[in-house]
Write a protein that binds this DNA or RNA. Structure first.
Length: 425
RNA sequence: GGAGAGGUGGCCGAGUCGGCUGAAGGCGCUCGCCUGCUAAGCGAGUGUAUGGGGUCAACCUGUACCGAGGGUUCGAAUCCCUCCCUCUCCGCCA
Protein backbone atom coordinates (compact mmCIF):
# COMPACT_ATOMS: atom_id res chain seq x y z
CA UNK A 1 0.00 0.00 0.00
CA UNK A 2 1.04 3.55 -0.66
CA UNK A 3 2.15 6.15 1.77
CA UNK A 4 -0.68 8.67 1.61
CA UNK A 5 1.70 11.58 2.13
CA UNK A 6 3.95 10.41 -0.68
CA UNK A 7 1.00 10.06 -2.99
CA UNK A 8 -0.37 13.47 -2.04
CA UNK A 9 2.92 15.18 -2.83
CA UNK A 10 4.03 13.09 -5.82
CA UNK A 11 0.87 12.18 -7.61
CA UNK A 12 2.27 12.61 -11.11
CA UNK A 13 5.45 10.70 -10.40
CA UNK A 14 3.45 7.86 -8.86
CA UNK A 15 1.18 7.75 -11.89
CA UNK A 16 4.13 7.45 -14.23
CA UNK A 17 5.89 4.77 -12.24
CA UNK A 18 2.71 2.73 -11.94
CA UNK A 19 2.10 3.12 -15.66
CA UNK A 20 5.36 1.24 -16.30
CA UNK A 21 3.54 -1.87 -15.08
CA UNK A 22 1.24 -1.53 -18.07
CA UNK A 23 -2.25 -0.09 -17.98
CA UNK A 24 -3.02 3.42 -16.85
CA UNK A 25 -4.24 3.94 -13.32
CA UNK A 26 -6.36 6.99 -12.69
CA UNK A 27 -5.22 8.63 -9.47
CA UNK A 28 -7.57 11.59 -9.66
CA UNK A 29 -10.09 9.96 -7.29
CA UNK A 30 -7.34 9.78 -4.72
CA UNK A 31 -6.74 13.52 -4.71
CA UNK A 32 -10.46 14.11 -4.38
CA UNK A 33 -11.02 11.63 -1.58
CA UNK A 34 -7.93 12.70 0.30
CA UNK A 35 -9.02 16.34 0.17
CA UNK A 36 -12.53 15.55 1.33
CA UNK A 37 -11.21 13.40 4.10
CA UNK A 38 -9.01 16.13 5.48
CA UNK A 39 -11.77 18.72 5.39
CA UNK A 40 -14.25 16.44 7.14
CA UNK A 41 -11.66 15.40 9.68
CA UNK A 42 -10.87 18.99 10.53
CA UNK A 43 -14.52 19.91 10.96
CA UNK A 44 -15.35 16.89 13.06
CA UNK A 45 -12.32 17.31 15.28
CA UNK A 46 -13.03 20.97 15.93
CA UNK A 47 -16.51 20.04 17.14
CA UNK A 48 -15.14 17.23 19.25
CA UNK A 49 -12.66 19.57 20.85
CA UNK A 50 -15.47 21.89 21.82
CA UNK A 51 -17.63 19.10 23.11
CA UNK A 52 -14.77 17.78 25.23
CA UNK A 53 -14.20 21.20 26.71
CA UNK A 54 -17.85 21.86 27.49
CA UNK A 55 -18.42 18.36 28.82
CA UNK A 56 -15.56 18.84 31.25
CA UNK A 57 -17.18 22.06 32.40
CA UNK A 58 -20.56 20.37 32.83
CA UNK A 59 -18.86 17.65 34.82
CA UNK A 60 -17.35 20.16 37.21
CA UNK A 61 -20.58 22.09 37.70
CA UNK A 62 -22.50 20.73 40.65
CA UNK A 63 -25.77 22.46 39.85
CA UNK A 64 -26.71 21.08 36.45
CA UNK A 65 -29.52 23.57 36.03
CA UNK A 66 -26.86 26.23 35.50
CA UNK A 67 -25.55 24.43 32.43
CA UNK A 68 -28.82 23.19 31.03
CA UNK A 69 -28.39 25.45 28.02
CA UNK A 70 -24.96 24.04 27.28
CA UNK A 71 -26.25 20.49 27.56
CA UNK A 72 -28.92 21.23 25.02
CA UNK A 73 -26.40 22.91 22.75
CA UNK A 74 -24.07 19.91 23.02
CA UNK A 75 -26.91 17.61 22.03
CA UNK A 76 -26.95 19.47 18.74
CA UNK A 77 -23.16 19.42 18.46
CA UNK A 78 -23.13 15.68 19.04
CA UNK A 79 -25.68 15.19 16.29
CA UNK A 80 -23.50 17.12 13.88
CA UNK A 81 -20.42 15.19 14.95
CA UNK A 82 -22.25 11.96 14.32
CA UNK A 83 -23.26 13.08 10.84
CA UNK A 84 -19.74 14.23 10.00
CA UNK A 85 -18.23 11.02 11.37
CA UNK A 86 -20.55 8.98 9.25
CA UNK A 87 -19.64 10.88 6.13
CA UNK A 88 -15.97 10.65 7.05
CA UNK A 89 -16.27 6.93 7.50
CA UNK A 90 -17.68 6.60 4.02
CA UNK A 91 -14.92 8.67 2.49
CA UNK A 92 -12.22 6.81 4.39
CA UNK A 93 -13.62 3.46 3.35
CA UNK A 94 -13.59 4.59 -0.25
CA UNK A 95 -10.08 5.96 0.07
CA UNK A 96 -8.86 2.80 1.74
CA UNK A 97 -10.55 0.71 -0.91
CA UNK A 98 -8.71 2.65 -3.59
CA UNK A 99 -5.35 2.47 -1.84
CA UNK A 100 -5.66 -1.27 -1.31
CA UNK A 101 -6.09 -1.88 -5.02
CA UNK A 102 -3.02 0.11 -6.12
CA UNK A 103 -0.04 -2.09 -6.92
CA UNK A 104 3.42 -1.42 -5.56
CA UNK A 105 5.82 0.99 -7.22
CA UNK A 106 8.42 -0.88 -9.26
CA UNK A 107 12.01 -0.67 -7.99
CA UNK A 108 14.21 1.87 -9.80
CA UNK A 109 16.42 -0.97 -11.04
CA UNK A 110 13.53 -3.07 -12.28
CA UNK A 111 13.83 -3.40 -16.06
CA UNK A 112 11.05 -1.57 -17.83
CA UNK A 113 8.92 -3.73 -20.07
CA UNK A 114 5.43 -4.80 -20.91
CA UNK A 115 5.52 -8.60 -20.80
CA UNK A 116 7.67 -11.57 -19.88
CA UNK A 117 9.45 -11.13 -23.21
CA UNK A 118 11.14 -8.08 -21.69
CA UNK A 119 12.49 -9.97 -18.69
CA UNK A 120 16.26 -10.01 -18.42
CA UNK A 121 18.23 -13.22 -18.03
CA UNK A 122 20.88 -12.54 -15.42
CA UNK A 123 22.80 -15.79 -15.35
CA UNK A 124 22.51 -19.48 -15.82
CA UNK A 125 24.06 -22.36 -13.96
CA UNK A 126 24.76 -25.90 -15.06
CA UNK A 127 24.70 -27.48 -18.47
CA UNK A 128 21.47 -29.08 -19.70
CA UNK A 129 22.24 -32.75 -20.01
CA UNK A 130 22.50 -34.29 -23.47
CA UNK A 131 20.30 -37.34 -23.73
CA UNK A 132 21.22 -40.27 -25.96
CA UNK A 133 17.52 -41.10 -26.05
CA UNK A 134 14.35 -39.08 -26.19
CA UNK A 135 13.70 -37.45 -22.84
CA UNK A 136 10.23 -38.12 -21.49
CA UNK A 137 8.01 -35.68 -19.65
CA UNK A 138 7.74 -36.36 -15.93
CA UNK A 139 4.11 -37.45 -16.05
CA UNK A 140 4.99 -40.34 -18.32
CA UNK A 141 7.95 -41.31 -16.17
CA UNK A 142 5.96 -41.04 -12.96
CA UNK A 143 3.01 -43.04 -14.19
CA UNK A 144 5.19 -45.75 -15.70
CA UNK A 145 7.12 -46.03 -12.45
CA UNK A 146 3.83 -46.26 -10.56
CA UNK A 147 4.71 -43.35 -8.25
CA UNK A 148 2.55 -40.64 -9.77
CA UNK A 149 -1.19 -41.01 -10.30
CA UNK A 150 -3.27 -38.26 -11.85
CA UNK A 151 -6.22 -40.42 -12.75
CA UNK A 152 -7.01 -41.49 -9.23
CA UNK A 153 -6.36 -38.00 -7.90
CA UNK A 154 -8.98 -36.85 -10.38
CA UNK A 155 -11.40 -39.41 -9.02
CA UNK A 156 -10.79 -38.35 -5.45
CA UNK A 157 -10.70 -34.60 -5.97
CA UNK A 158 -10.69 -33.41 -9.57
CA UNK A 159 -8.52 -31.91 -12.27
CA UNK A 160 -5.22 -30.33 -11.24
CA UNK A 161 -4.69 -32.72 -8.38
CA UNK A 162 -2.11 -35.46 -8.13
CA UNK A 163 -1.25 -38.35 -5.94
CA UNK A 164 2.24 -39.59 -5.13
CA UNK A 165 2.90 -43.13 -4.15
CA UNK A 166 5.75 -45.14 -2.69
CA UNK A 167 9.17 -43.76 -3.60
CA UNK A 168 7.48 -40.77 -5.26
CA UNK A 169 5.80 -39.73 -2.05
CA UNK A 170 9.00 -40.33 -0.17
CA UNK A 171 10.96 -38.21 -2.63
CA UNK A 172 8.57 -35.31 -2.07
CA UNK A 173 9.04 -35.69 1.68
CA UNK A 174 12.79 -35.99 1.25
CA UNK A 175 12.87 -32.75 -0.70
CA UNK A 176 10.91 -30.90 1.96
CA UNK A 177 13.26 -32.08 4.67
CA UNK A 178 16.36 -31.45 2.60
CA UNK A 179 15.32 -27.88 1.83
CA UNK A 180 14.33 -27.09 5.40
CA UNK A 181 17.56 -28.55 6.74
CA UNK A 182 19.61 -26.55 4.26
CA UNK A 183 17.94 -23.27 5.11
CA UNK A 184 17.89 -23.75 8.86
CA UNK A 185 21.32 -25.37 9.30
CA UNK A 186 23.30 -23.43 6.69
CA UNK A 187 21.39 -20.26 5.86
CA UNK A 188 20.23 -19.28 9.35
CA UNK A 189 16.51 -19.28 8.86
CA UNK A 190 14.17 -20.16 11.71
CA UNK A 191 11.71 -22.87 10.83
CA UNK A 192 8.02 -22.06 11.09
CA UNK A 193 5.04 -24.35 10.77
CA UNK A 194 2.13 -21.91 10.38
CA UNK A 195 -1.63 -22.31 10.00
CA UNK A 196 -2.65 -23.35 6.50
CA UNK A 197 -5.82 -21.31 6.73
CA UNK A 198 -5.89 -17.60 7.46
CA UNK A 199 -8.37 -14.81 7.99
CA UNK A 200 -9.12 -11.79 5.79
CA UNK A 201 -6.80 -9.47 7.66
CA UNK A 202 -3.82 -11.68 6.95
CA UNK A 203 -4.71 -11.97 3.26
CA UNK A 204 -5.08 -8.20 3.06
CA UNK A 205 -1.78 -7.67 4.84
CA UNK A 206 0.27 -9.41 2.19
CA UNK A 207 -1.78 -8.10 -0.73
CA UNK A 208 -3.87 -11.06 -1.92
CA UNK A 209 -7.02 -9.26 -0.83
CA UNK A 210 -9.06 -7.38 -1.79
CA UNK A 211 -8.04 -7.72 -5.43
CA UNK A 212 -7.39 -11.40 -5.94
CA UNK A 213 -10.10 -13.14 -3.98
CA UNK A 214 -11.09 -15.14 -7.06
CA UNK A 215 -7.74 -16.93 -7.03
CA UNK A 216 -8.20 -18.16 -3.50
CA UNK A 217 -9.95 -21.15 -2.01
CA UNK A 218 -12.36 -19.89 0.57
CA UNK A 219 -14.25 -21.44 3.46
CA UNK A 220 -17.60 -19.82 4.18
CA UNK A 221 -17.98 -20.82 7.77
CA UNK A 222 -15.81 -19.74 9.34
CA UNK A 223 -14.59 -17.02 6.99
CA UNK A 224 -11.17 -18.50 6.23
CA UNK A 225 -8.94 -18.78 3.19
CA UNK A 226 -6.61 -21.63 2.31
CA UNK A 227 -3.15 -20.14 1.94
CA UNK A 228 -1.83 -19.77 -1.63
CA UNK A 229 1.71 -19.56 -0.22
CA UNK A 230 3.40 -19.60 3.19
CA UNK A 231 4.25 -15.97 2.56
CA UNK A 232 0.81 -15.08 3.90
CA UNK A 233 0.86 -16.65 7.36
CA UNK A 234 4.59 -16.16 7.86
CA UNK A 235 4.71 -12.49 6.89
CA UNK A 236 1.68 -11.88 9.08
CA UNK A 237 3.49 -13.30 12.10
CA UNK A 238 4.65 -9.78 12.86
CA UNK A 239 1.55 -7.90 11.79
CA UNK A 240 0.85 -4.97 14.13
CA UNK A 241 4.19 -5.38 15.81
CA UNK A 242 7.18 -3.12 16.33
CA UNK A 243 10.42 -5.04 16.10
CA UNK A 244 13.79 -3.96 17.43
CA UNK A 245 16.44 -3.13 14.84
CA UNK A 246 18.95 -5.37 16.63
CA UNK A 247 16.71 -8.35 15.94
CA UNK A 248 16.71 -7.69 12.19
CA UNK A 249 16.95 -9.29 9.80
CA UNK A 250 14.35 -11.81 10.93
CA UNK A 251 14.54 -14.82 8.63
CA UNK A 252 11.93 -17.56 8.54
CA UNK A 253 11.54 -20.66 6.46
CA UNK A 254 8.36 -22.66 6.32
CA UNK A 255 7.05 -25.71 4.59
CA UNK A 256 3.37 -25.56 3.74
CA UNK A 257 1.02 -26.90 1.15
CA UNK A 258 -0.30 -24.13 -1.07
CA UNK A 259 -3.80 -23.89 -2.53
CA UNK A 260 -4.62 -21.96 -5.68
CA UNK A 261 -7.67 -21.89 -7.87
CA UNK A 262 -5.62 -21.11 -10.98
CA UNK A 263 -8.76 -19.38 -12.18
CA UNK A 264 -7.13 -17.53 -15.04
CA UNK A 265 -5.04 -20.38 -16.39
CA UNK A 266 -7.48 -22.75 -18.03
CA UNK A 267 -5.79 -24.79 -20.69
CA UNK A 268 -2.27 -23.98 -19.52
CA UNK A 269 -0.03 -26.70 -18.16
CA UNK A 270 -2.93 -29.08 -18.01
CA UNK A 271 -0.67 -32.11 -17.94
CA UNK A 272 1.68 -32.96 -15.17
CA UNK A 273 2.68 -31.39 -11.92
CA UNK A 274 3.47 -27.87 -13.08
CA UNK A 275 0.17 -26.26 -12.19
CA UNK A 276 -1.84 -27.87 -9.41
CA UNK A 277 -4.59 -26.72 -7.08
CA UNK A 278 -2.52 -28.04 -4.20
CA UNK A 279 1.25 -28.17 -4.08
CA UNK A 280 4.00 -28.15 -1.52
CA UNK A 281 6.45 -25.34 -1.12
CA UNK A 282 9.27 -24.36 1.19
CA UNK A 283 9.21 -20.61 1.57
CA UNK A 284 11.80 -18.09 2.69
CA UNK A 285 10.60 -14.88 4.36
CA UNK A 286 12.64 -11.96 5.66
CA UNK A 287 11.96 -8.78 7.62
CA UNK A 288 14.80 -6.32 7.12
CA UNK A 289 15.79 -2.68 7.57
CA UNK A 290 15.00 -0.68 4.41
CA UNK A 291 18.58 0.08 3.42
CA UNK A 292 19.44 -3.62 3.42
CA UNK A 293 16.55 -4.97 1.41
CA UNK A 294 18.28 -5.02 -1.99
CA UNK A 295 21.23 -6.89 -0.56
CA UNK A 296 19.00 -9.22 1.43
CA UNK A 297 17.09 -10.09 -1.72
CA UNK A 298 20.34 -11.15 -3.38
CA UNK A 299 21.14 -13.35 -0.41
CA UNK A 300 17.68 -14.86 -0.34
CA UNK A 301 17.92 -15.55 -4.06
CA UNK A 302 21.27 -17.23 -3.56
CA UNK A 303 19.84 -19.34 -0.75
CA UNK A 304 17.15 -20.58 -3.12
CA UNK A 305 19.64 -21.20 -5.93
CA UNK A 306 21.76 -23.25 -3.57
CA UNK A 307 19.01 -25.86 -3.44
CA UNK A 308 19.27 -26.37 -7.18
CA UNK A 309 23.05 -26.38 -7.15
CA UNK A 310 23.11 -29.09 -4.51
CA UNK A 311 20.60 -31.07 -6.51
CA UNK A 312 22.70 -30.49 -9.62
CA UNK A 313 19.74 -29.15 -11.59
CA UNK A 314 20.54 -26.61 -14.34
CA UNK A 315 18.77 -23.29 -13.95
CA UNK A 316 18.80 -19.66 -14.92
CA UNK A 317 17.89 -16.48 -13.06
CA UNK A 318 15.58 -13.94 -14.63
CA UNK A 319 15.08 -10.33 -13.60
CA UNK A 320 11.37 -9.67 -14.10
CA UNK A 321 10.41 -6.46 -15.89
CA UNK A 322 7.92 -3.88 -14.66
CA UNK A 323 5.17 -5.45 -16.73
CA UNK A 324 5.68 -8.90 -15.24
CA UNK A 325 6.24 -8.36 -11.52
CA UNK A 326 3.42 -9.18 -9.14
CA UNK A 327 0.98 -6.76 -7.55
CA UNK A 328 2.83 -6.39 -4.23
CA UNK A 329 6.40 -6.66 -5.49
CA UNK A 330 8.85 -3.88 -6.25
CA UNK A 331 11.46 -6.26 -7.66
CA UNK A 332 11.36 -9.93 -8.48
CA UNK A 333 13.92 -12.48 -9.58
CA UNK A 334 12.62 -15.78 -10.87
CA UNK A 335 14.65 -18.94 -10.84
CA UNK A 336 13.81 -21.22 -13.74
CA UNK A 337 14.85 -24.83 -13.81
CA UNK A 338 15.68 -26.71 -16.97
CA UNK A 339 13.07 -29.31 -17.97
CA UNK A 340 14.30 -31.74 -20.63
CA UNK A 341 10.79 -33.06 -21.16
CA UNK A 342 9.66 -29.63 -22.27
CA UNK A 343 13.01 -28.43 -23.60
CA UNK A 344 12.43 -25.22 -21.66
CA UNK A 345 13.28 -23.37 -18.47
CA UNK A 346 10.29 -23.20 -16.12
CA UNK A 347 9.79 -21.15 -12.97
CA UNK A 348 10.64 -22.98 -9.78
CA UNK A 349 11.11 -20.01 -7.47
CA UNK A 350 10.11 -16.38 -7.34
CA UNK A 351 12.06 -14.10 -5.01
CA UNK A 352 10.73 -10.63 -4.33
CA UNK A 353 11.40 -7.45 -2.45
CA UNK A 354 8.16 -5.86 -1.34
CA UNK A 355 9.86 -2.94 0.32
CA UNK A 356 7.35 -1.30 2.66
CA UNK A 357 4.27 -2.26 0.63
CA UNK A 358 3.23 -5.21 2.78
CA UNK A 359 4.69 -3.67 5.91
CA UNK A 360 2.39 -0.67 5.60
CA UNK A 361 -0.66 -2.84 4.98
CA UNK A 362 0.18 -5.11 7.86
CA UNK A 363 1.73 -2.45 10.15
CA UNK A 364 5.03 -4.25 10.55
CA UNK A 365 7.52 -1.77 11.97
CA UNK A 366 10.83 -1.53 13.76
CA UNK A 367 12.71 0.92 15.95
CA UNK A 368 16.33 1.76 15.33
CA UNK A 369 16.82 2.74 18.96
CA UNK A 370 14.83 2.25 22.11
CA UNK A 371 13.48 5.79 21.89
CA UNK A 372 13.32 6.01 18.11
CA UNK A 373 10.28 6.58 15.96
CA UNK A 374 8.84 3.39 14.50
CA UNK A 375 9.65 2.87 10.83
CA UNK A 376 8.28 0.35 8.39
CA UNK A 377 10.39 -2.73 7.74
CA UNK A 378 10.94 -4.11 4.28
CA UNK A 379 9.59 -7.58 3.65
CA UNK A 380 11.01 -10.14 1.25
CA UNK A 381 10.13 -13.64 0.30
CA UNK A 382 10.92 -16.34 -2.16
CA UNK A 383 10.33 -19.98 -2.82
CA UNK A 384 13.12 -22.14 -1.59
CA UNK A 385 11.76 -24.07 -3.54
CA UNK A 386 8.46 -25.19 -5.02
CA UNK A 387 8.66 -28.84 -4.02
CA UNK A 388 6.45 -30.44 -6.66
CA UNK A 389 8.27 -28.67 -9.45
CA UNK A 390 11.59 -29.72 -7.97
CA UNK A 391 10.40 -33.31 -7.92
CA UNK A 392 9.34 -33.17 -11.53
CA UNK A 393 12.63 -31.52 -12.48
CA UNK A 394 14.47 -34.41 -10.85
CA UNK A 395 12.33 -36.91 -12.73
CA UNK A 396 13.08 -35.29 -16.06
CA UNK A 397 16.74 -34.44 -15.52
CA UNK A 398 17.69 -37.68 -13.79
CA UNK A 399 15.76 -40.08 -16.01
CA UNK A 400 17.49 -43.08 -17.51
CA UNK A 401 16.95 -44.82 -20.77
CA UNK A 402 15.01 -47.62 -19.06
CA UNK A 403 12.61 -45.13 -17.51
CA UNK A 404 14.08 -45.27 -14.03
CA UNK A 405 15.06 -42.14 -12.15
CA UNK A 406 18.33 -41.72 -10.29
CA UNK A 407 18.12 -40.05 -6.89
CA UNK A 408 20.41 -37.02 -6.54
CA UNK A 409 23.29 -37.68 -4.21
CA UNK A 410 22.25 -35.21 -1.49
CA UNK A 411 18.78 -36.73 -1.21
CA UNK A 412 19.86 -40.33 -0.70
CA UNK A 413 20.24 -40.01 3.07
CA UNK A 414 16.64 -38.81 3.12
CA UNK A 415 15.57 -41.77 0.98
CA UNK A 416 16.90 -44.49 3.21
CA UNK A 417 19.89 -44.84 0.93
CA UNK A 418 17.82 -45.47 -2.21
CA UNK A 419 19.82 -44.61 -5.32
CA UNK A 420 17.29 -45.09 -8.05
CA UNK A 421 13.53 -45.25 -8.45
CA UNK A 422 12.50 -48.22 -10.55
CA UNK A 423 9.07 -49.50 -11.53
CA UNK A 424 7.00 -50.34 -8.48
CA UNK A 425 4.35 -53.00 -8.18
C1' G B 1 -20.93 -28.46 21.79
C1' G B 2 -22.20 -27.18 27.41
C1' A B 3 -20.77 -24.23 32.06
C1' G B 4 -17.76 -20.42 34.02
C1' A B 5 -13.70 -16.50 34.07
C1' G B 6 -11.35 -12.84 31.48
C1' G B 7 -9.38 -9.41 27.48
C1' U B 8 -6.23 -2.12 30.00
C1' G B 9 0.31 0.94 27.75
C1' G B 10 6.88 -3.45 26.18
C1' C B 11 5.35 -6.68 30.50
C1' C B 12 2.63 -7.19 35.28
C1' G B 13 -1.41 -4.78 37.35
C1' A B 14 -5.18 -0.72 39.63
C1' G B 15 -9.38 1.64 37.85
C1' U B 16 -14.79 2.99 43.32
C1' C B 17 -21.78 5.32 42.25
C1' G B 18 -19.94 7.05 34.15
C1' G B 19 -16.76 13.31 34.61
C1' C B 20 -8.90 16.73 34.44
C1' U B 21 -7.38 8.73 33.83
C1' G B 22 -3.62 8.50 28.02
C1' A B 23 -4.90 6.03 32.01
C1' A B 24 -2.43 4.86 39.61
C1' G B 25 1.40 1.45 41.15
C1' G B 26 5.31 -1.98 39.94
C1' C B 27 8.79 -4.13 36.43
C1' G B 28 11.49 -3.18 32.16
C1' C B 29 13.86 0.48 29.10
C1' U B 30 16.52 5.45 28.10
C1' C B 31 19.37 9.61 29.91
C1' G B 32 21.83 11.91 34.09
C1' C B 33 23.90 11.53 39.19
C1' C B 34 26.22 8.63 42.88
C1' U B 35 29.05 4.31 44.38
C1' G B 36 36.82 3.22 42.50
C1' C B 37 34.12 -3.48 40.02
C1' U B 38 29.15 -6.13 40.28
C1' A B 39 24.77 -5.13 42.81
C1' A B 40 22.07 -1.54 45.12
C1' G B 41 20.62 3.82 45.44
C1' C B 42 18.84 8.93 43.66
C1' G B 43 16.58 12.17 39.79
C1' A B 44 14.18 12.79 35.09
C1' G B 45 11.96 10.64 30.93
C1' U B 46 9.40 6.60 28.59
C1' G B 47 2.53 4.42 23.68
C1' U B 48 0.60 4.58 18.66
C1' A B 49 -2.01 6.74 14.64
C1' U B 50 -3.76 10.91 12.40
C1' G B 51 -5.11 16.49 11.38
C1' G B 52 -3.13 21.51 11.91
C1' G B 53 0.99 24.96 12.99
C1' G B 54 6.21 25.30 12.66
C1' U B 55 13.38 27.72 11.40
C1' C B 56 9.36 21.36 8.93
C1' A B 57 14.49 18.01 12.98
C1' A B 58 14.29 18.04 18.17
C1' C B 59 8.91 21.30 18.99
C1' C B 60 3.68 23.20 19.89
C1' U B 61 -1.42 21.88 19.38
C1' G B 62 -6.30 19.23 18.17
C1' U B 63 -8.51 14.34 17.69
C1' A B 64 -8.82 9.08 18.20
C1' C B 65 -7.39 4.53 20.49
C1' C B 66 -8.18 0.45 27.50
C1' G B 67 -10.02 -6.97 22.19
C1' A B 68 -13.49 -5.34 17.55
C1' G B 69 -18.03 -3.04 16.03
C1' G B 70 -22.57 -0.67 17.39
C1' G B 71 -25.80 1.81 21.26
C1' U B 72 -27.18 5.01 25.71
C1' U B 73 -25.25 9.99 27.49
C1' C B 74 -23.56 16.82 27.53
C1' G B 75 -19.64 13.18 28.69
C1' A B 76 -17.80 5.82 28.75
C1' A B 77 -11.93 1.95 29.95
C1' U B 78 -16.22 2.32 33.22
C1' C B 79 -23.55 1.07 31.50
C1' C B 80 -26.22 -1.96 27.27
C1' C B 81 -26.03 -5.15 22.64
C1' U B 82 -23.35 -8.11 18.91
C1' C B 83 -18.94 -10.43 17.47
C1' C B 84 -13.74 -12.16 18.09
C1' C B 85 -9.96 -14.13 21.11
C1' U B 86 -7.72 -16.37 25.65
C1' C B 87 -8.10 -19.41 30.07
C1' U B 88 -10.57 -23.32 33.43
C1' C B 89 -13.98 -27.51 33.88
C1' C B 90 -17.21 -31.11 31.26
C1' G B 91 -18.27 -33.50 26.56
C1' C B 92 -16.24 -34.91 21.78
C1' C B 93 -12.02 -35.81 18.83
C1' A B 94 -6.52 -36.55 15.50
Amino acid sequence: MFDVKYLRDNLEQARERLASRGGEIDLAPFADLDGRRRTLLGDAEALKAERNKVSALIGKTKDKSQVQGEIVRMQEVSKRIKALDEELKGVEAELQGLLLTLPNLPHEDCPVGTSEDDNRELRSWGEPRQFEFEAKPHWELGEQLGVLDFERAGKIAGARFSLLRGAGARLERALINFMLDLHTDHHNYVEILPPFMVNREAMTGTGQLPKFEDDLFHLDDPDFFLIPTAEVPVTNIHRDEILAAVDLPVCYTAYTPCFRKEAGSHGRDTRGLIRQHQFNKVELVKFVVPEESDRELEKLLDNAEEVLRQLQLPYRVVDLCTGDIGFSAARTFDIEVWLPGQQAYREISSCSNFRDFQARRAAIRFRREAKGKPELVHTLNGSGLAVGRTLLAIFENYQQKDGSVVIPEVLRPYMGGLEKITAQG
